[in-house]
Simulated scan of single mutants.
Amino acid sequence: MPYQWTPDQPDRQTDWQLSLWPYRSLLRKDFVLFMGATAALVALPLISLLGTVVVWALLPFFGLMFWGLWTAINISYKRGEVLEELAVDDTTAHLIRHNPKGEKLEWHANRYWVTVHLHPKGGPVENYITLRGGDREVEIGAFLDVSERLALYGDLKRALRSDQAT
Results as ranks from 00 to 15, higher is better:
residue 2 P to L: 04
residue 4 Q to G: 05
residue 4 Q to M: 11
residue 5 W to H: 05
residue 5 W to P: 01
residue 7 P to W: 00
residue 7 P to C: 00
residue 10 P to H: 09
residue 11 D to M: 11
residue 12 R to E: 06
residue 13 Q to S: 07
residue 14 T to R: 07
residue 14 T to P: 04
residue 14 T to G: 02
residue 15 D to K: 11
residue 16 W to D: 02
residue 16 W to H: 10
residue 17 Q to L: 00
residue 17 Q to D: 00
residue 17 Q to R: 06
residue 18 L to N: 00
residue 18 L to M: 01
residue 18 L to Y: 03
residue 19 S to V: 11
residue 20 L to N: 01
residue 21 W to M: 02
residue 22 P to K: 03
residue 22 P to H: 03
residue 22 P to D: 02
residue 22 P to W: 06
residue 23 Y to Q: 04
residue 24 R to Q: 08
residue 25 S to H: 12
residue 25 S to G: 11
residue 29 K to H: 09
residue 32 V to L: 10
residue 36 G to C: 08
residue 36 G to A: 08
residue 37 A to H: 05
residue 37 A to W: 07
residue 38 T to G: 05
residue 40 A to V: 13
residue 40 A to E: 01
residue 42 V to P: 09
residue 42 V to S: 11
residue 43 A to C: 09
residue 43 A to K: 03
residue 45 P to F: 01
residue 48 S to N: 09
residue 48 S to I: 02
residue 48 S to D: 09
residue 49 L to R: 04
residue 50 L to Q: 10
residue 50 L to A: 12
residue 51 G to D: 02
residue 51 G to F: 03
residue 51 G to H: 06
residue 52 T to D: 05
residue 54 V to I: 11
residue 54 V to L: 13
residue 54 V to W: 14
residue 54 V to S: 10
residue 56 W to N: 01
residue 60 P to M: 03
residue 61 F to D: 08
residue 63 G to Y: 06
residue 65 M to Y: 13
residue 65 M to S: 13
residue 66 F to N: 03
residue 68 G to V: 00
residue 68 G to H: 07
residue 68 G to K: 06
residue 68 G to R: 06
residue 71 T to N: 05
residue 71 T to K: 13
residue 74 N to R: 12
residue 75 I to M: 14
residue 75 I to R: 15
residue 75 I to N: 14
residue 76 S to I: 00
residue 77 Y to D: 02
residue 81 E to A: 13
residue 82 V to I: 15
residue 83 L to C: 13
residue 84 E to D: 11
residue 84 E to S: 10
residue 88 V to M: 09
residue 88 V to N: 09
residue 89 D to E: 05
residue 89 D to L: 07
residue 92 T to L: 15
residue 102 G to F: 14
residue 103 E to H: 15
residue 107 W to E: 02
residue 109 A to Q: 08
residue 111 R to P: 00
residue 112 Y to D: 12
residue 114 V to T: 07
residue 114 V to M: 05
residue 120 P to I: 06
residue 120 P to Q: 07
residue 120 P to C: 08
residue 123 G to R: 01
residue 124 P to D: 12
residue 124 P to N: 14
residue 124 P to H: 13
residue 124 P to K: 15
residue 125 V to D: 06
residue 127 N to C: 08
residue 127 N to M: 11
residue 128 Y to P: 04
residue 129 I to Y: 07
residue 129 I to T: 07
residue 131 L to R: 05
residue 132 R to A: 08
residue 135 D to P: 04
residue 135 D to I: 10
residue 136 R to S: 12
residue 137 E to D: 03
residue 139 E to I: 03
residue 140 I to H: 01
residue 141 G to E: 15
residue 141 G to K: 14
residue 141 G to M: 12
residue 141 G to D: 15
residue 144 L to W: 00
residue 144 L to E: 05
residue 146 V to R: 13
residue 147 S to I: 08
residue 147 S to C: 02
residue 147 S to W: 12
residue 149 R to S: 03
residue 150 L to K: 14
residue 151 A to S: 15
residue 154 G to L: 00
residue 157 K to H: 02
residue 157 K to P: 00
residue 158 R to P: 00
residue 159 A to V: 09
residue 164 Q to C: 10
residue 164 Q to D: 11
residue 164 Q to F: 07
residue 165 A to F: 08
residue 165 A to Q: 13
residue 166 T to F: 01
